[in-house]
Write a protein that binds this DNA or RNA. Structure first.
Length: 373
RNA sequence: GGAGGGGUGGGAGAGUGGCUAAAUCCAGCAGACUGUAAAUCUGCCCGCUUCGGCGUACGGUGGUUCGAAUCCACCCCCCUCCA
């Protein structure tokens, strides 16, 4: 069994379907919880699964440094190591080119990082990134890319995007040499917020040919409206038969708007990080549970939810746990947020299948007060 | 009764003539977080404010001084030790 993507229904530009892989199916549009260091922080894998996650993320850079890709391979691979038997998507380390820009040097060859842990030097080339992702056993792998922040001028954005293109070719060559059947490598469309660059990137990647395409370099400072504008001139030109993955996005409203523009896959640290920081995402929008107004609120976040974290604990208790610095607070709120995100994805899939996405978006806007054009 | 030490903003605790509306930490209030250097970070935290300031303030009262949380006098209170 190999990688395949089957569309079940469309509604405008939006699609719903299934990606089939040896380790399981991924219902799209999909939200993939982020488990950078081999754990979705503060969560048990079985609870992540119970929220409805079909696939989670891992990270090349972090796992390369600790515990080391070869060690994970010796332990039987990342799935066994972390007790997550379903598909795993790994980022290539491209995001760290931006987030750790102070600790790395960029050359044609690749990226040399000074470890944020102990300062040790590590060269991450496109080939080494693929090798690491294969050692980890990642089901869906990412090419190494450069993820520049926006704003960036056209010239620099073009140079960066073309570097990522050259790395895409090298990544594919390396992948074809060592990957196992059933694994997939995605190319990453770059080009900042410039239409000509996004088109050039997409055309070149399409020529190289990947089983799925990521849209990178968004949600990096440009704002929702601008991000949607970029999607508007990008997704219509993408291969309809292949999954489209908007990397690092996002807030629920970002996801809803991107799904309407034809995006199939998402990942974001927001539900987990915000959960650890006391922010709950709800059907009415985000709320900071540490606010004093919750100190005496005996109602749960969502009494109608199937998720214990959402249903069985009062806001007053969650408020207390955070105020007291208790571990259970971040655990419960992470759990709730992941469940909320998966409920949102399930609702989007159902709405697309029923041909009523526009109605769903209107209801979402009314309930959250969010602006989604 | 005697000797010594000490009383600073909600708490702890710096400061011992002007750079002090008063360090720092905690508590409190609010915000942020988008392919995770994040159980993190930021702002506010005496009152009023047109955000430029203005008014009060370091146990109390009085004094020295151009100027006092800081020096002096007396008083009040707390702690330790001796009777």
């Amino acid at each position: 069994m190999t990688f395949s993507f089957t569309l079940a229904a469309t509604d405008g530009a939006a699609r719903t379907g299934v990606i089939s892989m040896p380790r399981g199916e991924i219902r799209t549009p999909a939200f993939m919880p982020v488990g950078t260091a081999g754990t979705v922080k503060a969560m048990f894998p079985e609870d992540v699964r119970a929220t409805g996650a079909d696939i989670i993320l891992g990270n090349t850079y972090h796992l390369m440094l600790r515990p080391g890709a070869e060690r994970v391979a010796a332990m039987g691979g990342l799935h066994k190591f972390m007790n997550w038997p379903r598909p795993i998507l790994t980022d290539s380390g491209g995001y760290q080119v931006m987030s750790l820009s102070a600790l790395r040097k960029l050359t044609e060859e690749g990226v040399s990082f000074a470890s944020h842990i102990d300062g040790s030097k590590h060269l991450l080339t496109p080939e080494r990134s693929i090798e690491i992702q294969c050692l980890l056993g990642a089901d869906i792998q990412m090419q190494l890319d450069e993820c520049p922040a926006i704003p960036i001028d056209h010239e620099k954005a073009a140079a960066s995007m073309r570097l990522s293109l050259r790395w895409a070719e090298r990544s594919k060559r390396a992948f074809e040499a060592i990957a196992k059947p059933g694994q997939a490598l995605f190319g990453i469309v770059q080009g900042a917020n410039y239409e000509d660059l996004r088109r050039e990137s997409l055309d070149q990647l399409t020529a190289i040919d990947f089983p799925g395409y990521s849209i990178g370099g968004l949600a990096v400072g440009e704002g929702r409206e601008e991000m949607f504008r970029v999607l508007d001139f990008t997704t219509p030109h993408m291969d309809k038969a292949k999954p489209r993955y908007l990397m690092g996005v996002g807030k629920p409203g970002d996801i809803v708007g991107a799904v309407a523009r034809g995006v199939d896959m998402f990942d974001c640290v927001l539900p987990t990080r915000a959960g650890r920081h006391g922010q709950a995402w709800t059907k009415q929008g985000p709320v900071n549970i540490t606010n004093a107004r919750f100190a005496d609120d005996e109602t749960p976040i969502d009494p109608a939810s199937d998720c214990p974290a959402s249903r069985d604990y009062s806001k007053a208790y969650l408020h207390h746990l955070f105020k007291a610095g208790e571990y259970l607070g971040p655990m419960l709120l992470t759990w709730h947020n992941l469940d909320y995100y998966q409920q949102l994805m399930a609702a989007l899939r159902a709405a697309i299948a029923a041909g009523r996405l526009a109605d769903f978006i209107e209801e979402f806007r009314a309930a959250t007060g969010e602006t989604i054009v």
